[in-house]
Design a binder for these strands. Structure first.
Lengths: 230, 230
DNA sequence: AACCGCTTGTGAACGCAGGTACAAAGTCGC
DNA sequence: GCGACTTTGTACCTGCGTTCACAAGCGGTT
């Protein structure tokens, strides 16, 4: 019993904690023993005060006048994020994207292990991807039960994503990462995070067009009157 | 001159507009001519009032008592998002993830076309992926200039992402979608959006552990007393 | 041993996004 | 032609996230 959860951590903060953890790994490799909030914030691309507030949700973990101990902070973040030991994940839909994810070294090195790869296409069953063999979708329930997978990743076409999701939930998965472009509905107690790649591009397209086509607000026509330019 | 930008659109709204546009495409395929905000919101997974507020940023585009005309709304959203015609994109780093993105049909159907694929590995140069040939990274500047690509996608390893980003910006790209796990620094006037896949998993791991390990707030031990269970 | 500078941790204000509730408006039925 | 119903559009409010600014605390120095 660590009684270490006096404050609740906002989800936006959790996402940043994961970023800090990665930056810390780089610093540890470089042999650094301490870091200041300013340096860490710069590397993570956030505000220093915000970073300190994020870390303060875990309780005091720095030393005033010195900074944060790299190794100690790594441990603390690892524990807070729940990645102390490897977490088993199942991935459904081994298309191009699914195969890329299954083979992505960044997951394994951060404590995520794909213990089950499932696909509905018989032609794909039996393939080995990232050290795991693709199995038929019919075995979803048994794979989840046998591996006690806690996280499910969906990279199927949109039209089957909801049914796959339902089966994952029924099998006991309570955390789902969805790459299919649909809004999944799940019962209370199940968390879904959605990654929508084309939405990201469309937001960029919007910003692009806003710059080019809607200058009344963004335009900078100030002709630099004269005098000491710069 | 359409003078159609009286209000500025929040970025969170823009991201949802892209989702609405996709849902509308499905409705149009189904032959629907009109939709209510409630139905559209349910399909997109958002609040109906929020959806109406989002759409109202584009000016009135519905008919009271009737709903929204599917075709008209599609046009309006397409124009607002700046995807009326195909937008050329360049993709740097043709690993598994890069190849999956280059081949992803969801991009092409939404007005994004990869006109340049670049990789530093000579073994990969010349490969054809998604209808385009991989070219050496040295040609980055000429490809950007020749295609007038407005969006750059970075799927390189983290250690070269910043230099690739700098070259893209120098070549004239002002919108960047970054999959590398680093915070890119860019000059003002350039937009960067970051997709961090392992962060998504770590957030799920956190929520998972919070449920299992810190139940004082989330626990639901109510044993369903009796009566009309349902 | 006391001072000084540096860095953390936190309290307060600001701005923004999301939700609720109501008024405006248009259509359908009689 | 008029009334009632449906649905949009918007004003208000609440809550969260972010930022700024300051006080507390620790190490190094003399």
């Amino acid at each position: 019993m660590t009684q270490s959860r006096p404050r609740i951590v906002p989800e936006a903060t959790v996402a940043r904690l994961a970023v800090y953890l990665r930056v810390l790994a780089g610093l540890a490799d470089g042999g650094r023993s301490h870091v200041s909030s300013g340096e860490l914030a710069a590397a993570a691309g956030v505000n220093p005060a915000g970073l300190r507030k994020d870390l303060s949700y875990l309780g005091p973990c720095g030393v005033r006048g010195v900074g944060y101990a790299v190794a100690g902070l790594q441990e603390r973040l690892t524990a807070a994020l729940g990645v102390e030991r490897s977490r088993p994940c199942v991935l459904v839909g081994i298309g191009r994207l699914g195969a890329a994810l299954a083979d992505y070294a960044g997951f394994a090195s951060r404590g995520f292990e794909f213990v089950g790869l499932l696909d509905a296409d018989p032609a794909r069953v039996g393939d080995r991807v990232g050290g795991c063999t693709v199995r038929p979708i019919e075995e979803l329930e048994s794979v989840v039960a046998g591996t006690r997978a806690s996280i499910g990743v969906i990279t199927t076409p949109a039209d089957v994503a909801q049914s796959v999701c339902d089966r994952l939930v029924a099998a006991g998965v309570r955390s789902i990462l969805n790459f299919a472009p649909v809004a999944l509905s799940v019962p209370a107690g199940v968390d879904v995070r959605k990654v929508d790649l084309s939405v990201e591009l469309q937001v960029l397209a919007f910003l692009d067009q806003q710059r080019d086509g809607g200058p009344p607000t963004v335009v900078v026509p100030v002709p630099v009157p004269a005098g000491g330019a710069r």
